[in-house]
């Protein structure tokens, strides 16, 4: 579904990604594992079109999206749930969710999607008319995920969904991600909580200093000596 072929990307003169290649297949859950600063977020931002690679190609369902603008990529059905929630603070939760369904492919099914999302996130229903900035960190993360779901994406990307959340909330977030995965969605996830993520994923890539150094099934990675030492601390 998604094919990345040897991309270099970075900010200004600083190159962060060096020849990264990876793929995500239909209904697969793929994770990118790596230390802080390895380039995980940069990879997701490049796929989403917020950053343009200097070399390499990105294909989505066979179409070359390398040079496409971010909003056109959303139209194609790729949605990124960004690191740090990034809600619209002075909008209500309902308005935030409606913005999620801004893309043409989702606009017509707005009401229907809303019902479906409310089932997944019963807690949000009670908060629909509150301003997003008045929610707790965990609630905000739930709204961010719900907003991403509102776009009815073909590929859903998560960037550090458990960042800065208390352990109990992290468990809830992973429960929700588990439900989304169980519904057959195609997911690409980046997360510092390596253990939980590998448990939920089908396959994984290990990113170090901007390059993929290892790729295997999630199960194999959990047993890999290098991964265990570098990311699980054992």
């Amino acid at each position: 579904m998604l094919n990345i072929e040897g991309i270099d990307a970075g900010y200004g003169a600083t190159t962060i990604l060096n020849g990264v290649s990876l793929e995500v297949n239909q209904s697969e859950v793929v994770t990118i594992v790596g230390a802080n600063g390895a380039g995980k977020t940069t990879t997701l931002r490049t796929i989403a079109g917020l950053l343009k690679p200097t070399t390499g190609r990105i294909l989505f369902e066979g179409e070359d999206i390398t040079k496409m603008s971010a909003h056109d990529i959303v139209e194609l059905g790729i949605t990124l749930i960004p690191e740090g929630r990034q809600l619209f603070p002075d909008m209500t939760v309902r308005e935030n969710l409606l913005m999620g369904a801004y893309r043409r492919g989702a606009r017509d099914h707005q009401a229907e999607t809303m019902d479906h999302v409310m089932e997944l996130f019963p807690r949000i229903r009670e908060r629909l008319d509150q301003h997003a900035s008045s929610l707790s960190g965990g609630e905000q993360q739930m709204v961010a995920i719900a907003r991403g779901m509102m776009a009815r994406p073909k590929l859903l990307m998560f960037d550090e969904p458990s960042l800065g959340l208390a352990p109990i909330i992290v468990a809830q977030v992973f429960e929700v991600i588990g439900k989304i995965v169980a519904s057959g969605a195609t997911v690409l996830i980046v997360e510092q909580n390596v253990f939980n993520t590998l448990k939920a994923a089908d396959r994984g890539y290990v990113l170090e200093n901007g390059s993929i150094v290892l790729s295997d099934t999630a199960e194999a990675l959990l047993k890999d000596d290098h991964v265990r030492q570098a990311y699980l601390g054992i």
Partner: peptide
């Protein structure tokens, strides 16, 4: 309110 997030919603900023 949030330019980057708006882009991620598919808005042509």
């Amino acid at each position: 309110q949030n330019r980057a997030a708006a882009q991620l919603m598919g808005i042509n900023v």
